[in-house]
Design a binder for these strands. Sequence first.
DNA 1: CGCCACATGTAAGCCGTTACATGATTGT
DNA 2: ACAATCATGTAACGGCTTACATGTGGCG
Lengths: 207, 207
Amino acid sequence: MATVSALGYALLCALHRGPLTGYELVQRMRKPIGYYWTAQQSQIYPELARLSASGLIEHDAEAGPGPRQRKTHRLTAAGREALAAWLVEPPALRAFRDEAILKTYALAAADPDGMREFYLAEAETYQRRLDDFQAQHADLLSGHADDPLHPQFGAFATLELALAGTPPRIRWCRWMAERMTELARLRRESTPAEGSTPASRTSPPDG
Amino acid sequence: MATVSALGYALLCALHRGPLTGYELVQRMRKPIGYYWTAQQSQIYPELARLSASGLIEHDAEAGPGPRQRKTHRLTAAGREALAAWLVEPPALRAFRDEAILKTYALAAADPDGMREFYLAEAETYQRRLDDFQAQHADLLSGHADDPLHPQFGAFATLELALAGTPPRIRWCRWMAERMTELARLRRESTPAEGSTPASRTSPPDG
DNA sequence: CGCCACATGTAAGCCGTTACATGATTGT
DNA sequence: ACAATCATGTAACGGCTTACATGTGGCG
């Protein structure tokens, strides 16, 4: 039995609700699933071929718009089994990387005014993402996807997490932007002449 | 001017507060910075050599415990400049991957009882991490690292984010575990005989 | 006519993980 | 004796990103 990569399982996940073409999978790996799992088109097509060779997916082929056939992929019984077995396993949880947190760690080496702009831009990015999440959430709610029996309950649940996790991050970004303003002032006051105004410490974003 | 990889900048970040040996950098890339940026030892040593060749770091060498020299690396002026320039740039924010969310998306294909265990295990993992964060946070607070002028304010700020973001995630995991219990019951009721008890919908974790 | 969406693939090269290799010192 | 910690490196392999390649049909 050939071992399946994380990307392979991601594709099986994407196919769990019904058949899709490679092209549709590429789209899914950008936006809806894309916020928590991404893959390049050049990675997806070879992986589909591998999953097919392992017998976890199969496809119908019709004449496509270009020189090649259009293939609609779906899970086989073996694929559904492999997916079900993988889902309940604890995540391998490898390599989490967040560039913004890394930059925060080395903040002392940066220009406070530049970092203020950085955090404000971050806050805006996450705010736009949150708006997107809220729209999708409202859509699913209107279709009663908050019922665990609903086939889209999984998608609904991922949005619940996003809606719970994004606002604290936005608040933190704005709080950091304020701290950068304060830091710029403190450095101006203390570096040229020893200033006397003490730092007015405010509460962290989570109260 | 040679281009620097994300890992290269991560190492410059880790060195921003003072010189470290390769071995110490390996430790840093596990635990304290490790929760938001990781790197393998086999990746770090060659990258240090590359940064040295680019003139962004330099090192003193003494006799080490093993067959090779022990090298203590520090930023050069050029390194500090390159770091400062990179810090204020908006993150490239590539490939965010979260296996637990991916699995949630395909939840309908899984066994509810298995998934319940999955979410409870996740909640415990994050709870242990949160305890760790809180201990580090208390340590830094007792050293007044909440002052933006404090050299460790950056490290303090990363913990502020972790302390704001982790509890919602834990609540979500526990909420999902409850939904899985409910789902198992609903399926038992509706599959063999058409049950009549309607789903008792509870509020999502963020209220 | 140029651009975009549809649709599928390949190639080059870097990035990351796992495993191998060496060897002194300190603790059980 | 055995294991762990300190300390630095290399090799093999697979994953991922960027870019290239091909061709149709619809829109402005």
